[in-house]
Design a protein around this nucleic acid. Structure first.
Length: 507
RNA sequence: GGCGCAUUCGUCUAGGGGCCUAGGACGCCGCCCUUUCAAGGCGGAGAUCACGGGUUCGAAUCCCGUAUGCGCUACCA
């Protein structure tokens, strides 16, 4: 009777879990801890599961679980057990485990480790207000119902009075929390509150549900944000009251915003899907996130997922909070993009270009699907210029557009008069058009010779051609770009530019 | 107010008594490469290791205190 339904999947292995409440989109802070949990499970050849903590029915947001899992899956973090996939210790929604919590709560009451509390919210509010007004050292429940006589309890029950079940915290002594990252921490029982275990609506609070689930789901390592540290002693007390072994408890430092404050829904904590849509690579995300609060050594910062799994361990997790640094993530993402095989890059970039302009894709005037062969040649030139996959949209658009929009002044190279620029552009156009074969080295040599003949530096001359052909001042190497764009289109753009500049100079 | 955790360059971090006149990375600055932008190479600025006391021959590293920051203090998680 007192034996809990335990995991029966075989030999005990490391089992970790991510236990989100379905109140919104996952954000970077919680995600980092999840990465740790997942890495630990993978490192140990154990299991990683997802359990939805939806005991607060008033805050549950529709679709949140799907988003959560979608985000994790994008990162390559796929739970071994959880919603949708199921598993041997389900259900994986706390709202569906209500009877189990009630059962153990009753057991705690029977063993005198917990008691029914009939206090109304009004009374609780009054007590709290009074305590605050008097600046009492400890705010918290005054334990009014802790020693109700059996008769009173029976009467209240008969009268159908709503009640909560509270933990009967020992009045003195202390609890020792064995914290994996911090060692043993002793808390005075006198500073702990008789926390509510079962709410009057019959649902458990986090404290109870968390302990029961972690035990019955055979979780061996509980990794959670350090904002949970203050309630760890409470949880240890519950484990002890139930006669259960306490799993390894590790409270990871939180990832904070630029201002050093905890990340929250409205505070720079974009959903993980935001990063996906911006074009960050999941492998870069994991690598970056793993390095906030954990390190491998004093010099390595690029680690593949496999390397991370192999190297991860709790004893290199540290205890101070870290600030989320987008610039560093962008740098790392660029490293990963540059390392991608070209065809792989093409495959990954394609959806970013083809999505509607309103969602960040190429202008809708550009026909879909994008020519994969052309894109491949384009990305060959742009790969080292991308920090995110989304950058490709802006960088490559001119290869796909029909008409270029730029100001005629842009055609005038630095230090040139409009007339000289026009002359240079005409001569360059004639020169390039007359070349029998287009080959970058020969084109460059010819253009340099032209610059010398015109008595200008190559730079300004090249810039005029660059803008003519691409509409921008920053591009991949000019002649390779022209070849990639195609001779016909390049020449047409040169002629358009000459006309444009003629008009500008004349008018 | 109470309780708790934390504190090394702007940021992520290495460091667990002498190897530290504190190392790496991002970012920043300069130079090189160069037709632009990147990428790459080289170099630089940037931390009295929060502060104050100890312990020790010797402390960023151990202990105590202070300060600051953050978190918790709900029938939220």
């Amino acid at each position: 009777m007192s034996t809990a339904p335990a995991y029966t999947g075989g030999t005990p292995t490391v089992r970790t879990r991510f236990a989100p409440s379905p109140t919104g989109m996952p954000h970077i802070g919680g995600l980092r801890t999840t990465v740790f949990s997942w890495l630990l499970a993978r490192h140990s050849n154990g299991q990683f599961l997802v359990r939805v903590e939806d005991t607060d029915q008033t805050r549950t947001v529709a679709g949140a679980v799907e988003n959560l899992l979608q985000g994790l899956e994008w990162m390559g973090i796929v739970p071994d057990e959880g919603p949708f996939v199921g598993g041997p210790v389900g259900p994986y929604y706390q709202s569906e485990r209500k009877q189990m919590y009630a059962y153990y709560a009753a057991q705690l009451v029977a063993s005198d480790h917990a008691y029914r509390c009939f206090c109304t919210r009004e009374r609780l509010d009054e007590v709290r207000a009074e305590q605050q007004a008097r600046h009492m050292p400890t705010t918290g429940y005054d334990r009014h119902c802790r020693a109700l006589s059996p008769e009173v309890i029976a009467g209240n029950l008969a009268g159908n009075l709503p009640f909560t079940i509270r933990l009967k915290v020992p009045l003195d002594g202390e609890v020792v929390v064995r914290e994996a990252l911090r060692g043993e921490m002793a808390f005075k029982n006198s500073t702990l509150e008789d926390a509510v275990l079962i709410k009057s609506d019959g649902f458990p609070t986090y404290h109870l549900a968390n302990v029961i689930d972690d035990h019955t789901m055979a979780i061996t390592h509980v990794l959670r944000g350090d904002d949970w540290l203050p309630s760890a002693p409470l949880h240890v007390l519950i484990y002890q009251a139930l006669g259960w072994e306490v799993p390894v408890l590790a409270h990871t430092p939180n990832v904070m915003g630029n201002d050093g404050k905890k990340l929250s829904k409205r505070h720079g904590a974009e959903s993980i899907l935001f990063y996906r849509d911006a074009g960050f690579l999941p492998e870069a995300m994991i690598n970056y996130l793993a390095l906030v609060g954990w390190s491998y050594d004093d010099k390595t910062d690029i680690l593949s997922v496999d390397e991370l799994i192999k190297a991860f361990s709790l004893d290199r997790v540290h205890t101070a909070g870290g600030v989320f640094d987008l610039e560093r993530l962008r740098w790392m993402n660029g490293v990963y993009i540059r390392a991608l095989p070209l065809d792989e890059l093409v495959t990954r970039v394609l959806p970013y270009l083809e999505r509607p302009a309103g969602e960040g894709g190429l202008p809708d005037t550009i026909a879909r699907p994008i020519d994969r062969g052309l894109l491949r040649r384009v990305l060959h030139l742009d790969q080292e210029r991308l920090k995110t996959l989304g950058d490709a949209v802006d960088l490559t658009a001119f290869f796909f557009e029909d008409a270029l929009a730029y100001a005629p002044e842009a055609l005038i190279g630095k230090g040139l008069t409009p007339e000289k620029a026009l002359d240079g552009l005409r001569r360059a156009t004639d020169l390039l058009t007359s070349m029998p074969d287009w080959e970058p080295t020969a084109m460059e040599a010819a253009m340099r010779a032209l610059a010398e003949e015109l008595g200008t530096k190559p730079g300004p001359l090249f810039m005029g051609v660059r803008v003519a052909v691409t509409g921008r001042t920053a591009t991949p190497p000019l002649f390779e770009t022209m070849l990639t764009l195609g001779r016909d289109r390049s020449e047409a753009r040169l002629r358009d530019a000459v006309a444009k500049l003629e008009k500008h100079v004349a008018g």
